[in-house]
Design a binder for these strands. Structure first.
Lengths: 215, 215, 215, 215
DNA sequence: GCCTAAGCGAGACGGTACGTCGTGTCTTACC
DNA sequence: GGTAAGACACGACGTACCGTCTCGCTTAGGC
């Protein structure tokens, strides 16, 4: 079982960084369709085998390239990578507006958008990668979102029965969809309307009905 | 300008049908990654050039394969393809439940799911294809959804100011997201909860804030 | 059976010629160890697949490159490719000297030597190629050599029982060996001594002992 | 200058033996084309560097593997490796028959044949290796052959002017050629005919004409 | 009996070439 | 002129070895 995996202790961190940087550059310059393992290796000044040795797929490289982007700009190995926290001014409406507007801004930044788009494409046909993404990227962020909503709920700003998990999806899925497919403008107004409507749902009585009648 | 376009009158309908059928079969059997123009041509007993002559990209073939699936099972060229209508029993809540549960069922059908997934992947990197999809497939369906909500609004089941376009997105985007990325179970319960929460939003006062400051 | 072989009628003769020319050039420039399919394809301006489609191995390409060298310098498709004839002045000794000296000269010509050396290396590990070589290149030449010796034998210049096949091998194998391995100088003197000694053997009485006691 | 050469005193004889044994095994099992440094190292349980440290090329390893085969099966470091002696019963004809038949038998033994064939291939493109082979393996054997012929010559069994060096080549080159390229059966009959004809040449008057007219 | 330098197993590394697959274009022969 | 067939130049795939390089670990002598 342990016999096939290479020893991470021997891994050359310079090569790793060069590969991730090359991946980001190529995505920003030419888009996902032009991203090939050969070009990454050539740009990074690295043998192809070094990529195949450490990543199971091109999607996994893209994933790491994106992760590396979020991490330590330069300094220490990031304080506590798992702890994400949303702003809490006491006003759930304003706070969500802030957060969704920030997300809209991220989607407008090519340096972030290009690798993320590439990652989504890979995830759609690679369930393993999708699971990895959920576990390592999405899960902590979603947890933070739910936490913020729960605080608001406890403070009486949301209905005690509100279906908080669903509210999170209703907030973000429309955003993601417009970004991925261009099905509509992706601006602050859209973010604001999403917040307004999602919070209406979360304030209504009898929101959650988890008496799951199985299909 | 006219010199390059092939004459559609001379097009061989048997070849066209064979190509679309082969595309669907290959997608169902082996998934999107294994779908190649060469395999489609071989399976359809058709020259590669016949595909390149009539479709601008592989995504366009997939699109047509999916369209052909929705159309006339065998008989006439379908009465009026543009006219979609949602059920209207007078109870918006029940009707939406019916419709979303049907969508959930569609996503569970491999014959439908495989080409649609392939199409989504293509659209994410092909804006032209995405625009085509919106115009020819999504637009009429979305129009029907909005129509049904407007009827309910006019009957007083929804708030007069409800942001109906947004409600449609909040209903369907979470569904699509779970399907594409597997971010959660995709069942009747989820559909029902979506309907419940979206309608809460649509019944709240002051829903829409159409003081749309365009970006 | 016939299904796997490509149709030679569709073969592009310009590509074929370019491949063989590139092979000869690369061999002359850098020797056998530097000869790769990729370099041949690049130099010939040809896709690798075009080589793999028409030749079963690198050795087969080298073989054809060598054959093409011997054929039609430019004009017609060569009169009768199979008919080789050695000089016959009536003096077997002088004629053999002429022929072996010519062989020595050939081995000194890099344009001929390089591909032939490459071909020998391939043949040593590829029995199929070796058989092909014997059938298409060596056989007609050996037949001509035996013919010339037989004429001399009929004219009484050689013993009636002389083992002519063996004499041919004793004439040429030492030449080939010195060429391949550099086991000694390869000059006209060596050629002359080979002729002298081989003819001594061919003139001795009781040369052949075909009372083959099988091992 | 002395800084780069490793100290032979520190060489691990167990590794050396394992490498040579692995080389022979791999050659016998899969032939020359499958012989790689990596496979040798893996089979021998040795680091690649240990091979690169002590041998300049793969051919050199093969050479040593072959040498080790001829040497001491296990015991002492072989009496005097340089001293080879051909049988001498007083009958040159019978003795040569014995020796050539033994050579034929060697070529039929895969344990000996496989490394020797590999060595020949290397020598054809590696002049240094060829020179080494001549000096350390071929020279003493050829010297013994010439010695035996000279003895026969002194006893009047061969002509006083016989070109003994050439006779040796005419005896062995045809044998080697048939072995390497499979140009004909390699059996006792062939060996016997070679001896008969070569000795005819060696008994004829005026054999050698070393009045070398330089080309 | 310690120290240090070498050989050693292991295997990551930057590369080159392999042989295969798919792309989109072109050509040939048929209808 | 559309079509089935498939050759073509091209480029990427994922794998195998190359020869070099760094790691710890053993294993001498030399002190």
């Amino acid at each position: 079982m342990t016999s096939r995996a290479p020893d991470p202790g021997r891994r050359n961190p310079r090569s790793r960084a060069a590969i991730l940087a090359a991946t980001r550059e190529l995505l920003a310059e030419a888009g996902f369709r032009a991203l090939t393992i050969e070009k990454i290796a050539a740009r990074a000044g690295v043998g192809k085998q070094t990529i195949y040795r450490w990543w199971p797929s091109k999607g996994a490289v893209v994933f790491d390239a994106l992760l590396a982007l979020s991490e330590t700009p330069e300094g220490a190995e990031s304080g506590t990578p798992g702890t994400v926290e949303l702003p809490d001014t006491g006003d759930i409406d304003a706070d969500l507006r802030t957060v969704l507007r920030a997300t809209v801004a991220e989607f407008a930044d090519p340096a972030f958008e290009a690798p993320l788009r590439a990652l989504y494409i890979e995830m759609i046909t690679d369930a393993d990668l999708a699971a990895d993404y959920r576990r390592r990227m999405a899960a902590p962020i979603n947890e933070a979102k739910r936490r913020r909503l729960r605080t608001a709920q406890e403070q009486g700003q949301l209905h005690p029965d509100a279906d908080l998990d669903l509210i999170v999806e209703m907030l973000y899925a429309p955003l993601t969809q417009r970004w991925l497919l261009g099905t509509g403008p992706l601006d602050r107004d859209f973010a604001d309307r999403l917040v307004t409507n999602a919070l209406h749902a979360a304030r209504a009585p009898g929101a959650a009905a988890p008496d799951d009648q199985r299909e």
